[in-house]
Nucleic acid binder design. Structure first.
Lengths: 100, 100
DNA sequence: CGAACACTTTAGTATTAACTAAAGTATTGT
DNA sequence: ACAATACTTTAGTTAATACTAAAGTGTTCG
């Protein structure tokens, strides 16, 4: 599956972001998302792994995932910038809240 | 529609690339693609236009489209780099051909 | 006007894929 | 061994969308 197609899916971008700066267990990711079943999360993780965009490490009954940022190639910067922009958006909203 | 979703579709990336360096009429784009109906091309152009990724200029019975590269934001570089890489790939293939 | 042209839109079909629920696998702890 | 935990996989449903064929819109030209 093309990397662009993989990251075009919002849920997968959420997941990718959660494992961007460090590994997380699948269950941890599931809890962080909240409004989706464990199965669905697992399926997305599989897609990400098969596309080579995340690494998996098994440890006992846990599976730890982390983004393979380099594998994103040119998309890496694009995602980082999009997320940075979103943060600015949220910061702007927070300021608006404060001001009201 | 999210820009990422729009450009995730291969056919739309083809179209976007065709109008990247200058405007082209819809029919011209259709002929350049070849293996798809005019209707389908028109639909993709609509999606691209609605996402704000292309501009349209009407002239008589022609409609000229061109990429709004700036509107791609962080994706612009990503696409350009991907296309550049593809060219390298093709160049590499050509070299392999020559060598055989 | 009427025909040809350039393109869009609609109706209908087929594929893809995200999701849930439930069953399955593997590991740990008692 | 048994139960609980952590996760994956499967089966089945639903929604989205890329496509074709055909009808529709608007413009130019004889």
């Amino acid at each position: 599956m093309h990397a662009l197609t993989v990251v075009a899916e919002p849920r997968r971008r959420e997941i990718l972001r959660l494992v961007w700066d460090g590994e997380r267990a699948a269950g941890d990711i599931h809890r962080a998302l909240g409004d989706v079943t464990f199965g669905a999360v697992s399926q997305h993780l599989r897609v990400l792994a098969e596309a080579g965009l995340v690494d998996v490490r098994r440890d006992g009954r846990h599976r730890f995932y982390r983004a393979k940022r380099a594998a994103l190639g040119p998309l890496r910067r694009a995602l980082e910038q999009m997320w940075a922009a979103k943060l600015d958006e949220l910061a702007a909203l927070a300021e608006a809240e404060d001001a009201s």
